[in-house]
């Protein structure tokens, strides 16, 4: 079985405490709001980033799969610099600029709720839970753009089997790290932190549902949700919760962060559906990142093109009502 090596961060890469504190003071002094407020002017000026330099780390061993072989990959640079990760700021380039503050190592994930016995698992143990594999998935953002990303990870089902949920477990809830020191965007109540997401048990067990720990054959960059994130390719991108610290099995349908923020616009299912518009914009088409300035929008596919695999999960459901 493949045994991925855990990247050891050389001490030269670790930000000295004094520098780190100084940066915190600067952030506090400047006020995160003011910094972002200045983004209006940053339309003209390139913004200075206070990101720590992060070295790219290859994942030693993972299997190839046929998923998405026919797709053209979105450039690594675009995948890692055009992100929605509000914990690091609401601008698309904020995560790449600020995610250096996140320390994805050491990391533990606690598993609780409707299971035989609550557990915690370190990221090292989690990586050994199942063989890693590469899967190329389309990712469709609720904002109307999409990417094609070669993820490295394993099916969430493997972790669920290991967790041994009881018969009462009908849903799975996921929780992101809540630590404004590492996630400066959390200093602002844009969302009700921590970020949470949820899946129905059958969705969570579906073989397409991935726990990703890497992309492009490398350890997941912080801005993409290090050290472990969810990837549900037939749902809008925000369902793919990042930097997971808690997985809870529940009897009741969990309320996600976006449902809390605006239940009229964001539902629990959030399946990609070109026939059901966002209340404020159309979902019929999407712009593929990398297509360039003079490219046409593409037609959005039902369940993001994964209808054959997941359509049966929703038979008999009114997808207009359960959006």
């Amino acid at each position: 079985m493949a045994r991925p090596t855990i990247p050891h961060i050389p001490s030269s890469e670790i930000t000295p405490r004094t520098v780190y504190d100084g940066r915190r003071d600067f952030l506090k002094a400047a006020g995160f709001g003011l910094v972002s407020g200045a983004a209006i002017m940053s339309g003209l000026l390139p913004s200075a980033s206070h990101a720590a330099q992060i070295t790219r780390q290859k994942i030693e061993r993972f299997g190839k799969t046929p998923y998405g072989q026919e797709e053209t990959l979105t450039l690594y640079e675009d995948v890692t610099t055009y992100n929605n990760f509000y914990e690091f700021g609401t601008g698309k380039s904020d995560p790449a600029a600020n995610a250096g503050l996140l320390k994805p190592h050491p990391w533990t994930v606690s598993i609780e709720g409707q299971i035989k016995k609550p557990k915690t698992i370190t990221i090292e143990e989690l990586l050994r839970l199942a063989p890693l594999e590469e899967r190329i998935y389309r990712m469709r953002c609720v904002e109307g753009w999409s990417m094609v990303i070669p993820w490295v990870g394993f099916p969430l089902a493997e972790l669920i089997k290991w967790a041994e949920p009881t018969g009462n477990a009908k849903f799975v809830e996921f929780v992101t790290l809540n630590n404004p020191m590492m996630m400066p965007g959390q200093n602002l109540a844009v969302l009700d932190w921590p970020y949470t997401e949820g899946l129905r048990m059958d969705e969570a067990m579906h073989l397409l549902t991935l726990l990703a720990v890497g992309l492009y054959g490398e350890v997941l960059p912080n801005q993409n949700g290090a050290p472990v994130r969810l990837v549900v390719p037939w749902k809008y991108g925000f369902k793919g919760i990042k930097s997971i610290v808690k997985i809870r099995f529940t009897e009741q349908m969990p309320v996600s962060a976006w449902m809390k923020a605006n239940s009229r616009e964001y539902g629990f299912y959030s399946n990609v559906n070109p026939a059901v518009d966002h209340p404020r914009w159309s979902q019929a088409t999407e712009r593929r990142i990398g297509d360039g300035l003079f490219a046409r929008r593409r037609k959005t596919l039902m369940f993001n093109g994964y209808a054959e695999q997941v359509g049966q999960l929703y038979t008999g459901m009114d997808l207009r009502k359960y959006f």
């Binding site: 339309g43 698309k92 490219a295």
Partner: peptide, 30 residues
Amino acid sequence: IPLLRLLWLASANGLGANPVEFVIRSLGTW
């Protein structure tokens, strides 16, 4: 200047991952 900047960025491949959105948003902002 805002227009010249956009033309310069377009010619230098500097409009980012989503150039269409960048151009529309920038023109809207200005």
